[in-house]
Computed example of a mutant assay.
Amino acid sequence: MKRVILIIVAILVLLAIPVTVFLVSQQQELRKRATPATTLSLLPATVETTTGESFSIDVRIDTGENQVVTAEIALSFDPEKLQAESITNGQLFPNILTSGSVDSGTASIAVGAPNTSQPITGIGTAAVVRFKALAATEAPVSVRFASTTFVGGLGEESANVLVGTTPARVTITGGSQETTVPLPTPTLSDEEESTQSGDASSSAVLIIAPEKNESVADELPTITGKAPPGSTVTLVIRSNPVTVTVTADANGNWSYTPTIPLVDGTHSVVASAIDPVSGQTQTSSTSFIVAAGGGNEASTDSATPVAGTVETTIFLLSLGFLLLLSGVLSRYGKLS
C-alpha cells in the first residue's frame, strides 16, 4: 500500500513540473509582448491657425505596461511654414536631462522621471512645444516624431519601448504675402557644448568625455566634464544604476573613474549640479559604448526574465525526478 501511495505522489509531482514551467513561460511571453507598449502622440492632432499666430502642441505619452524613466523627444516639421519657438518638459516629467533645442525644422528635448524609484506610469504630458505660423499652407503640414525619438523603461534603458507615434497636422491661413522665414539661432546640444568647454558658461554642467555614442576599450573609462567651480556634481551611470558625487575644482573641471568594471555594451551618464546663479538644477547627459572585448554581455538590468528552451527544461527536470523515483522505489523494494 505504501508503494502505491509513493508512486501516486511521484506521478503528481512529475505532472506538476511541466504544468508549472508552461505557466511561467506563458507569463514571460505576455511580458515580452507588453514591453514595447508605450506610445507618443501630438495634441491637438489638428490645428487651424493664421499667419503670425503662435500656438502650443503637447507631446502626450501613454506608458502602457511600462515604467518609463527617460524620454528623448525629437520632432520635425516644414521650416518654411512653421517655426519652433521653444520646447519644455511637461508636468509628467519633472527632470530635464538635455535642455530643449530648437532649430530650423527641428525641436528636441530629453526628459526623465524624478528617479528610478519613481518611474512614470499612465498617460500625461511629456513635453510642450510652442510654434509660430510663418506662411499660409495649401494643404495641412505635418509635425511628426523623428526616428531618433527614444523611450526608456525601468530596467530596459538600452531598449526602446516606444511602439508607435501619432503626428499633428497644421493648417495655416492668412493671405498670399510672402513671409521672410526667420531662422532661429541654433542651440548647441550638450554634446556639441562639450567640445567647446573652454567657452562654456561657468554655470553650465557638461560631460566632455566620453562623447555621445563613443566606443571605449576600457572597462573603467574616466568620465570628465565641467561644472560651476566648487560645486557638487551628482553622476548617475547606467545600465546597472550607480550614483556617485564628485566636486568640481577651482577651474570647474571634474572627473570620475568607476571602481567596478563596466560590462560590454551601451551605458548612459547623467550629470547634475545646482547653478549658483539661478539656484536651479542643471543637467547634462550622454551615452557611450564599452567594447573592452572581455566577453561579457551588456547588462540591460531588464525586468523581463530571460528563459531558456522550455522543452529542454521539462525534459531535464522529468529525467531527474524519474531517476530519483527509481532509486527510491528500488531502495523501498529492498527494505520490504
Rank of each mutant, 00 (worst) to 15 (best):
D199E: 12
T222R: 07
P186M: 08
Q177D: 04
I208Q: 08
L12I: 14
L6M: 13
G64M: 10
T195P: 00
T165C: 07
T70Q: 03
F150K: 12
G198E: 06
P140R: 03
E48M: 11
T49S: 04
L6H: 02
S99A: 14
S203G: 09
V244A: 09
A248R: 14
G100K: 06
A146F: 05
T63E: 00
E53G: 00
G100A: 05
V68L: 13
S215K: 10
D275V: 14
S158G: 01
K32Y: 02
V102I: 15
T98H: 04
F93H: 03
F131H: 04
G293M: 14
S189N: 05
T195R: 15
P305N: 00
I7Q: 04
A71Q: 05
N296A: 10
S117E: 11
P276H: 06
T245D: 03
S76P: 00
A45G: 03
T222D: 02
G152S: 09
Q27C: 05
Q28E: 10
I57E: 02
A168P: 00
S104Q: 10
F77Y: 08
I11R: 04
V59E: 00
S215P: 01
S231F: 11
N66L: 12
E157T: 13
I96T: 11
L317D: 00
P228N: 07
T259R: 09
V244Y: 02
V143F: 04
L40H: 05
Q91V: 15
F55C: 09
G174E: 03
E53Q: 13
T304S: 06
D264S: 04
N240E: 13
V181Y: 01
S176V: 15
V242S: 09
D218N: 09
S287K: 11
D103H: 00
N240Q: 14
E211H: 01
S176Y: 03
T125R: 12
P261H: 08
A84D: 01
A84P: 04
P94G: 10
E178I: 15
F77L: 09
G294E: 09
T286H: 05
I7A: 07
G90R: 05
V270A: 10
L134Q: 07
L92A: 11
G225E: 03
R238H: 06
A200I: 13
L335Y: 03
S194W: 11
E48D: 02
E157P: 02
G152Q: 05
T286F: 12
P186T: 02
T232Y: 06
